[in-house]
Simulated scan of single mutants.
Amino acid sequence: MQKDQLFTRRRLLLAGGAALGAAGTAGIVLAGSAAETAGGAAAPAAGPQARPALKSSAFRLQPLTGYGPPRTAPRKLKVRTEPITEISRSGRRMMLTFDDGPNPNYTPHILDTLAKYDVRAMFFLCGECIVVNRELVARMAEAGHVVGNHTWTHPLLTTLNRRAIRDEMTSTSDAIEDTYGERPQWFRAPYGAWNRAAFQLGAEMGMEPMAWTVDSTDWTEPGTRTIVDTIENGAAPGVVILSHDAGGDRSQSVKALREYLPYLLDNGYRLTVPRRRT
Rank of each mutant, 00 (worst) to 15 (best):
H150W: 11
T151K: 13
T151Q: 04
T151G: 05
H154G: 07
H154Y: 03
H154S: 12
P155A: 03
L157G: 09
L157K: 08
T158M: 06
T159Q: 13
L160Y: 07
L160R: 04
L160E: 14
L160P: 08
R162D: 11
R163E: 14
I165T: 14
R166K: 15
R166T: 11
R166F: 15
D167N: 13
D167T: 07
E168T: 03
E168S: 05
E168K: 01
E168Q: 12
M169W: 04
M169I: 12
S171Y: 11
T172L: 04
D174H: 11
D174Y: 12
D174L: 15
E177N: 03
E177L: 12
E177Y: 10
D178R: 09
D178A: 10
D178N: 07
T179M: 00
T179V: 13
Y180I: 11
Y180R: 00
Y180F: 15
E182K: 14
R183L: 15
P184I: 09
P184Q: 05
Q185G: 11
Q185S: 13
Q185H: 10
Q185I: 03
F187C: 00
F187Q: 02
F187E: 07
F187Y: 14
R188C: 10
A189W: 13
A189N: 03
A189R: 07
Y191V: 10
Y191F: 15
Y191T: 06
Y191C: 10
A193Q: 11
W194A: 04
W194P: 01
N195V: 02
N195Y: 01
N195S: 01
R196S: 12
A197H: 14
A197D: 15
A198P: 06
A198Q: 02
F199E: 04
Q200I: 08
Q200A: 15
Q200Y: 10
L201H: 08
L201R: 07
G202R: 01
A203D: 10
A203F: 08
A203R: 00
E204W: 10
E204V: 05
M205V: 05
M205R: 11
G206V: 02
M207L: 06
P209H: 01
W212H: 09
W212V: 06
W212L: 12
T213G: 08
T213N: 08
V214K: 01
D215T: 02
S216L: 04
S216M: 02
S216H: 05
D218W: 12
D218M: 05
W219Q: 09
W219D: 11
T220E: 08
T220V: 04
P222Q: 13
R225W: 14
T226V: 14
T226L: 04
T226M: 06
T226P: 00
I227C: 07
I227T: 06
D229V: 00
D229K: 14
I231D: 13
I231W: 04
E232Q: 14
G234P: 07
G234M: 01
G234Y: 01
A235K: 03
A236N: 13
P237L: 01
G238Y: 02
G238A: 01
G238S: 03
V239I: 13
V240F: 00
